[in-house]
């Protein structure tokens, strides 16, 4: 799976860092770091992050999409 993160839409609320802390985290400067191709075992977290993002800035897509 791949994570598509729309930086234009993102407002840095950080809900994804709660739903999927192994994929999304804030660096020391407050910027969001995203693992673009997380392990398949993190799928439930990834989809939860997609579902809870208030700005709908996250999409989980298949590797070949």
């Amino acid at each position: 799976m791949r994570i598509v993160h729309d930086r234009e839409r993102c407002q840095l609320h950080g809900q994804c860092t709660i739903a999927a802390p192994d994929i999304f985290r804030f660096d020391d400067g407050g910027e969001l770091e995203v693992d673009p191709s997380p392990d398949e075992t993190l799928r439930a977290d990834a989809e939860s992050a997609m579902d809870v993002c208030p700005e709908r800035a996250i999409t989980v897509v298949a590797d070949d999409e």
């Binding site: 809900q15 709660i18 739903a19 802390p21 939860s48 579902d51 809870v52 709908r56």
Partner: peptide
């Protein structure tokens, strides 16, 4: 603590 509670509650409120 906040993150733990929020993760438990999120499923009831997802956009889907």
């Amino acid at each position: 603590d906040h993150a733990r509670l929020r993760r438990l509650m999120n499923p009831a409120f997802s956009s889907r």
